[in-house]
Write a protein that binds this DNA or RNA. Structure first.
Lengths: 374, 374
DNA sequence: TATATTGATTCAAACGTTTGAACAAAGCGT
DNA sequence: ACGCTTTGTTCAAACGTTTGAATCAATATA
């Protein structure tokens, strides 16, 4: 019942209550090697008292002394992006098994917060840093300070090996190919595409993959049916973009039987846009997404998409950063790029092309059909 | 270019490099009151050097000395629940303006992790704790240790004032009423309901609200059309549950024109189930959710739902816990319950009841209609 | 001229923990 | 009686920071 000044129970409290010294108590409670030398009765006694008082070692004091925090800063560019969550989960799993703790920070898609979050991580002396940058992400001088304090860093969702940073990014080109091939095999020939925002590094390779298959298999990629998502900050803005572009798509007056959208949210926006115009998915038009996030899975019809192995990517990131730590701060190996393969997930938003093809002429009652001219 | 043992730049490094003492450097860099007395040229000099060396104060050492970490532990029961994210955002906003930092932890819906996460928060000496417990959540002896170390605590999404904990929980009964009234005003009379799992405290009041309106306005709540979600851990399991129960609903052979689901994911499951059976939403049957999470917003048709002011709840939680800290650890006011009002969000999944009413007799081609007998 | 006052800087102790070294006491072989 | 090991415990310094008190000039006041 000793009166403590700070609200927290400390080793000293337990020392006093048990009659032993702070050293002994510390040795017992932290199961230091020396604790084998401590009498079993003493150990028991000290442990009991600690339990009673509700003692929790002060991680700050401990880290200060041990010069290691056993924690990894995990900086999510935008946690509200459903894309981040599985990656986070993977990271958590990867770290936990090694006894490390994630120090999660959410930059809320704001550049300013991104910087200050990074500072925060450095101030907390994380032993390493993992950055999840799915959506638009301007490079900052992040390198400067992190490297100056030689903290190993890994980035997920972006290729920054050129800047000397270990990177993990799905094989977007393969993903683009997968999507195009799937539609081709269903019999689609005229495909509309919504490309990602210019600032995102995923955009170009996905488009490349699509083009590759199109060229090889004779798909028709009418430039008037290729659109581009503007680069906005909010991940949910993909939905708005898809919705808006779906309308433009119909207005273009060119026939198409399928749409490949940049990501799942965009695809959901497209579904909304086409549905509003009276089309049925997938009967009148197939729609594909990319990523495989929760909203795509629970939508009706369930979205056919290209799955990124998000969780595995998180695990990999954790392993990378832990390796780098083990290797020692100084000897930075040359940065590697890990490119996991995406996977086609066939659900209900894609199907065979209709016998008739969408061709909305001069705005008749929303939907107008014309026979395909193949 | 001085060789440091630890990877991190410390005050001592700067002291040496600048020729001033550690004290002076500290005073300058932490903008302590005394820094007014420090010569402007000195200030400038020290700041420049700190910048060059990439100095970041060690949060651990600082907190140890200051006896305050300026951080709040935020323990999310399951971060993959889209419900959590807006709350998190609110908390972040509320804390940031007061200069506090959230220490986010994800219990991943696992009881064991829940406990260890709480320990972690205590070890990190958070000045306060906010718990977000949306989904099933068995009380632990969480009180014991947190209270023993007198750290103020607030819980969002559950009413624990009985256990002496400040709580914030939407007015579920009002929400239930809102949902029922909306359907009634559209002209629905026969309504199926999917109640939440027994373990969740939200379940009962929502049901109460629905019953209240039903009784007053003469809605028909056929017990054979009232279902109950089993209590599973995974938040996405609500979807599966809704899907399964939708099938049972049709199999019950009782006419209904609308469904109130326990939450949005469940509602999306219902939409899937009914759609699979050949029904159109909302033409043949209206479906309502609860919460207003992202997947509900981007689904097509967009989900009509009862919105919880999640962000505001997060802000409120932050303010509560900060107040408690300011008030001082000892004097715990008697715990209060804050019950924000939900809000009806009308989208596209609800509409007037069909002239014909769903009544799936002996499994004919999926969908069978019968005239309403009002 | 002695004494406050002010301005600029430093001393030294403290925060709670860990840990190499030291100490004390006992057992044991020579 | 001596050294040597073993067992059980404590000392004291260190981690990087903050801060009340102290120092020391130089200047202003009595």
């Amino acid at each position: 019942m000793s009166q403590r000044k700070s609200g927290h129970v400390t080793l000293l409290d337990i020392a006093r209550a048990s009659g032993f010294s702070v050293s002994t108590v510390s040795i017992v409670l932290s199961s230091a090697p020396l604790s084998q030398n401590v009498a079993a009765t003493t150990r028991e006694h000290i442990r009991t008292i600690a339990q009673q008082l509700g003692y929790h070692p002060d991680a700050y004091a401990r880290s200060l002394r041990r010069r290691s925090t056993q924690s990894i800063g995990v900086l999510g560019f935008d946690l509200s992006d459903p894309f981040c969550i599985p990656i986070m989960r993977g990271i958590q799993a990867g770290l936990r098994s090694a006894g490390y703790l994630p120090l999660m920070v959410d930059a809320q898609a704001q550049r300013k917060l991104f910087d200050s979050s990074l500072h925060m991580i450095l101030e907390r002396r994380a032993d390493g840093v993992i950055v999840i940058a799915s959506w638009v992400f301007e490079e900052t001088n992040l390198l400067a300070d992190v490297k100056k304090n030689n903290v190993p860093i890994v980035i997920v969702g972006r290729d920054l090996i050129a800047r000397g940073i270990d990177s993990i990014m799905v094989d977007n080109e393969a993903g683009g190919e997968l999507a195009a091939r799937h539609l081709k095999e269903l019999g689609h020939r005229r495909i509309a595409v919504i490309r990602g925002p210019r600032e995102m590094c995923d955009s170009e390779p996905r488009w490349l993959g699509i083009q590759k298959i199109a060229a090889r298999d004779g798909l028709d990629l009418d430039p008037r049916l290729v659109f581009q998502l503007p680069g906005l900050a909010d991940p949910a803005s993909g939905f708005e973009g898809g919705l808006r572009l779906a309308k433009k798509m119909l207005a273009a007056g060119r026939p198409f039987t399928a749409v490949i959208a940049f990501d799942d949210l965009t695809a959901l926006g497209v579904v909304r846009g086409l549905t509003d115009a009276g089309l049925r998915i997938p009967d009148d038009c197939s729609v594909m997404g990319f990523d495989d996030v929760l909203p795509a899975e629970v939508a009706t019809p369930a979205m056919t998409t290209i799955r990124q192995p998000l969780r595995e990517m998180g695990v990999e990131a954790a392993e990378r950063v832990l390796q780098a730590i083990k290797r020692g701060a100084g000897k930075a190996e040359k940065p590697r790029l890990h490119k996991p393969s995406p996977e086609l997930v066939v659900r209900k938003s894609t199907g065979c092309p209709p016998i008739a093809v969408v061709e909305p002429g001069p705005r008749r009652k929303g939907r107008a059909l014309a026979v395909v001219t193949q």
